[in-house]
Design a protein around this nucleic acid. Structure first.
Lengths: 157, 157
DNA sequence: GCGAGTTTGGTGACATGTCAACAAGTCGGT
DNA sequence: ACCGACTTGTTGACATGTCACCAAACTCGC
């Protein structure tokens, strides 16, 4: 912790810009999504992951891992979505502990109705503002950071 | 909403990478900050903004605007931080409605203790993983998006 | 100065996320 | 076959964020 290397001008600009963009983009996308489709971002993410899966169904732990959510959070959130008829739960055929999350027809309809608008919003507020080079750079850079951080579930040096 | 332009391979990579990085980086930084300094990210942000201000004090609405927080959120959060002795509230001298948020000595000590470790973590998990060109690109791109989104408080087409 | 309209900060109810604990099920060595 | 260790999903208590609403104070045209 001795003699910290502070961020220089350029680094600071990147870091502050990132955090500000993060916040604004989130607000905007969440607002659009809620207005257009009545879904929150977490709702959308759950439905999206489920709909991309062969049988529209996933084991709860599998879905939690993909989304980087805790099982607790997912379980709570699924209960709320189940209440609204977007997903349902089934028993796992072979593992008595397991729960399978299934996309209902209503859930499928919801994600299909929401997706075009959401993608359009992502384009409008992010992708279409960038040059192709910047898109590529963003892809490269984020994946590098993700790889660096992946598999760091708990305390590690 | 007709014929949506989906994201192509490269765009999708950037978008997914961004969201995944967002999540992982957040978890990691929050974890570090809590372990090392006993502060949440929102705590850190409040203290940081306050400490960068001439008199270590800001009007509540001013602080809320800078942070892109709702006043309600800030008010709630300040109450909790006040409880812990990190900030205090004063009356505004001329505007009877106003509240001034002031950094307490304990708050200043907390941010000064936390900052080096936090900056180091930002470096370790983000900045130092990027080339100088990428840092510059990230700065440019995020600021463009921020400018695009700024001043879009409510419903607007 | 007055009064309608705005701004400010705070509040309570509620939605969402986190954390620790738990019951039930599975696994693997013996 | 059994027992201890682990895994899975759920729950309740609590922390945090959002939303709608409110009272007090300010503004500005008249």
């Amino acid at each position: 912790m001795d003699a910290p290397r502070w961020l220089d001008e350029r680094e600071n600009r990147a870091w502050r810009g990132y955090r500000r963009m993060r916040r604004l983009l989130d607000l905007e996308l969440a607002r659009d999504l809620m207005q257009d489709a009545g879904l929150s971002e977490p709702d959308y993410d759950v439905l999206s992951d489920l709909s991309e899966t062969p049988d529209q169904r996933l084991r709860l732990s599998e879905l939690a891992d993909r989304m980087l959510w805790s099982r607790s959070r997912l379980s709570h959130h699924l209960s709320r979505m189940q209440q609204r008829g977007l997903v349902s739960r089934e028993e796992h055929p072979s593992d008595g502990r397991g729960s399978i999350v299934v996309l209902t027809p209503a859930g499928r309809a919801a994600i299909e109705a929401a997706a075009p608008g959401h993608v359009a919003a992502v384009r409008r507020h992010l992708i279409d503002l960038l040059t192709p080079e910047e898109v590529a750079a963003l892809g490269a850079l984020t994946h590098r950071v993700v790889d660096h951080l992946a598999g760091r579930p708990a305390t590690e040096v």
